[in-house]
Design a protein around this nucleic acid. Structure first.
Lengths: 159, 159
DNA sequence: TCAAGATAGTTTCAGATGAAACTATCGTGT
DNA sequence: ACACGATAGTTTCATCTGAAACTATCTTGA
């Protein structure tokens, strides 16, 4: 029970209604559910899957380009790539023009896995989105877009 | 560039339009921005802050009850509480009836910090939500609720 | 009453992660 | 030509995290 003094002293904070908390809980549940699938079926972590996802779309990216497109940092990318290379899912080639750059692409084996995962990923998303009507999905997408724009517009949240 | 064969072979997956990815990126940005504040000002991690948040509302919870209300597991709670106890922000008392249970509550010092954080947390949320109209906020809340219901209804996402 | 299983909470150990340091290469200005 | 700063990517180290094992206590049922 909340004391009167406390209630009056300041606004209450109910974790269940606090947007950052709700986002975090939902996202973790979704990520864990998906990670379980990727891991069980393909031995992939989510960072690894993300790298494969962008390489599946546009071959021959540098690690930096992968980092940009996956919203991961270069260290994460480096580690995910190292693991993927070791299991022959991704190959690294030197760039012709720039000795610092490595060109990354899916191996045939990586491509085969990619082709298997894409429908699975889309299916998982569809299962989740089955909770919403098409109109709601568009609305959700628009709202997430607005929030993302807002948060990236703030260098840090200023108080 | 995408080859025709590939495009026809299966639906494309664009990470930027993939809901789990978008949720993950948005949530991480929000969490990191907030964690920076909590950490800089109060030396609190997000798990620690969550524990304090629920203890601020209802004192004398067991660790298990804290875990339920924060969507954390008992190991996370145990660690967060250990750290909070060490810095005299939370106190642990034995339960009268059950020797296994510890009753957790904020110390006066913890309460003082809580009282300072709540307005900050609400402000951070408000800054984020400033991107949305009141109607959109309600819509967002409803959509997150639906998705949360959907994901928790699925033991794991079935394929 | 006491063995067996359930529950509360902690600890351990191994793998994941982030920040900073590091190596190697490139580009620029003098 | 070459010193200096910037950039690409990796490695190191210290911390965080999750899963499983562990301790202690409680509950149940023979």
């Amino acid at each position: 029970m909340q004391s009167d003094a406390e209630t009056l002293a300041h606004a209450r904070l109910d974790l269940d209604r606090f947007l950052p908390y709700r986002l975090s809980v939902l996202t973790n549940r979704v990520s864990n559910a998906i990670a379980r699938h990727y891991s069980e079926r393909f031995g992939l972590s989510i960072p690894e899957w993300r790298v494969m996802a962008v390489l599946g779309q546009s071959a021959s990216l540098s690690a930096r380009e992968v980092a940009e497109r996956t919203a991961m940092d270069k260290v994460q990318v480096s580690r995910a790539v190292a693991s993927l290379v070791e299991r022959r899912r991704v190959q690294r080639d030197g760039d012709d023009d720039d000795g610092r750059v490595t060109r990354l692409s899916l191996t045939p084996r990586g491509r085969a896995i990619y082709d298997e995962i894409v429908p699975l990923a889309l299916h998982l998303e569809a299962v989740l989105l089955a909770a919403l009507t098409p109109g709601e999905r568009e609305m959700l997408s628009a709202l997430l877009e607005k929030l993302s724009g807002r948060i990236s517009g703030l260098r840090a949240i200023e108080v």
